[in-house]
């Protein structure tokens, strides 16, 4: 089985990526994932967002294992 992970994107992040979900090869850690996404979608560099692995927010660099779902969660300000 290939080592892939699912990405779920919200708000501005989904716009920058052009989709609200995608499947990618697992880069191994959350930091590596962020770097890879920023290289692929340069619009992400100027955006701040939080990350969740299997619906649990992570606060520091975290190992990602096969099949995990990673959510990219930007803040919203509107009201």
């Amino acid at each position: 089985m290939p080592d892939v992970i699912q990405i779920k994107a919200f708000g501005m992040i989904a716009e920058a990526i052009g989709s609200d979900s995608l499947e990618i090869e697992n880069p191994g850690t959350s930091l590596a994932l962020k770097k890879q996404l920023e290289a692929q979608f340069p619009g992400l560099k100027s955006m701040k967002f939080s990350l969740a692995v299997d619906k649990k927010m992570i606060q520091e660099d975290t190992d990602i294992s096969q099949g995990k779902e990673i959510a990219l969660l930007p803040p919203f300000s509107g009201g």
Binding site: S50, P74, S77
Partner: peptide, 24 residues
């Protein structure tokens, strides 16, 4: 949830992007 303070430039609000009234 959001330790780093974002700027308005980064994320526009609904007076700029539009919104269907049902969402709020």
């Amino acid at each position: 949830l959001y330790p780093q303070m974002p700027s308005a430039k980064e994320i526009p609000n609904c007076s700029e992007t539009g919104v269907l009234g049902v969402l709020p």
